[in-house]
C-alpha cells in the first residue's frame, strides 16, 4: 500500500510547498511512490481524508490556520512541520519581539474577520512527529526524509551545525570578515548553501543541538557589532526557539497586556 500523503499550508509564502514540485529530478519518482491525496499546488485540496504523512507549511497566525491544523492533526499518522515558519515561527514570529505600537498601523483595520493571533510554530499547538526546517527546506533533505519514511524507518535530523558543512566545503569563515554569520548557532543539513555563496547564515534552520548563545553574543561584541543588531537578527528565525530570548518575550508580553488593560480601563 502506498502511503497517503497530503501537503497543507497555514499562513506563509508557499515557498516551502513549491520546493516539492521543484525537485525536478525526483518528483516523478516520488509521485510514483506515494498516493498523493491533497496538494493545492499540484491537484485539489482535500482536507477530509485520512493521511499517513502530511507536510504542513506555514505559521499559525489566525484562527482559520489553527482550525486546519487541528483537523489535519486528527487524521494524520505522521505530521511534519515543513519549513522555517512551521518549525520555529520563522519571519512572521519576529512580530512577537516587537512592540505592538510599531506594527499596529499595518493591520487590516476594516477587515475584522481576520482575527490575528500571535504567530506560533505549529508544535506550539499540536504534537509533531518530525521537523524539516529551512527557508525553504533543503531539497536533498526532503528526499532523504521521504526515503526513510517509505522504508518505515525513523528519520534522524541532521545533528551538526552549519559550520561543519561550511568548513568541509572549504569556505572562508565569514566571521573573520566581521559579518554576522550564525553558522555556529544553526542546525546544518543545508550544505551551507548561503556561506558557499558568500552570504552570512541567518539561522533559518533553527538552533543547533549544542548552542552556546552567550558566547556568540560576546564574539560579535568583541568584533564591535552592536548587540541589538545581533539580537534582532537572532529573532528573525530563531527567537521562538532560544531559551535565552524567553525573557525578552515575557517582558514584552507583560508590557503589552498592561497596555491593553490600561486601554480597556480608559474605555
Amino acid at each position: 500500500m502506498k502511503p497517503k500523503v497530503g501537503v497543507f499550508g497555514a499562513s506563509g509564502c508557499a515557498g516551502c510547498m513549491l520546493s516539492i514540485p521543484f525537485l525536478e529530478d525526483e518528483i516523478l519518482d516520488i509521485i510514483g511512490q506515494v498516493n498523493l491525496l491533497s496538494f493545492s499546488l499540484i491537484k485539489g485540496r482535500n482536507i477530509n481524508d485520512e493521511f499517513d504523512l502530511v507536510f504542513f507549511e506555514g505559521v499559525i497566525c489566525h484562527n482559520d490556520d489553527l482550525e486546519v491544523l487541528r483537523k489535519v492533526r486528527e487524521k494524520t499518522k505522521i505530521l511534519v512541520a515543513f519549513g522555517s515558519c512551521a518549525c520555529t515561527g520563522g519571519i512572521p514570529a519576529t512580530r512577537n519581539f516587537v512592540d505592538e505600537s510599531k506594527f499596529n498601523h499595518l493591520r487590516h483595520k476594516k477587515m475584522d474577520f481576520i482575527a490575528d493571533r500571535e504567530p506560533m510554530p505549529i508544535d506550539h499547538y499540536v504534537d509533531v512527529e518530525y521537523h524539516l526546517p529551512g527557508c525553504p527546506p533543503s531539497q536533498p533533505e526532503i528526499v532523504r526524509f521521504l526515503k526513510q519514511v517509505l522504508l518505515g524507518k525513523d528519520f534522524r535530523p541532521f545533528d551538526k551545525p552549519v559550520c561543519y558543512e561550511c568548513k568541509l566545503n572549504r569556505n572562508r569563515c565569514l566571521l573573520e570578515d566581521g559579518k554576522i554569520c550564525f553558522g555556529t548557532l544553526t542546525q546544518g543539513g543545508c550544505d551551507a548553501i548561503c556561506p558557499n555563496g558568500g552570504y552570512e547564515c541567518w539561522g533559518c534552520r533553527g538552533p543547533a543541538q549544542d548552542v552556546n548563545i552567550e558566547e556568540v553574543y560576546t564574539l560579535f561584541k568583541d568584533k564591535g557589532i552592536p548587540e541589538e543588531q545581533v539580537r534582532n537578527r537572532v529573532t528573525t528565525f530563531m527567537g521562538m526557539r532560544m531559551k535565552e530570548h524567553d525573557k525578552t518575550l515575557k517582558l514584552l508580553r507583560q508590557d503589552q497586556t498592561k497596555k491593553q488593560e490600561t486601554k480597556q480601563e480608559a474605555k
Binding site: E26, L146, C163, Y164, K167, C173, L185, D210
Partner: peptide, 24 residues
C-alpha cells in the same frame, strides 16, 4: 561554540560515522 572548526581543520583527526543512502 561547538562549531566543529577544530575537527574539520585538523589534518590528523580521522573519526567518521556511517549513513545509509537508499535509492528512491
Amino acid at each position: 561554540l561547538s562549531c566543529t572548526a577544530c575537527n574539520m581543520l585538523c589534518p590528523s583527526c580521522y573519526c567518521f560515522e556511517f549513513t545509509d543512502e537508499p535509492e528512491l
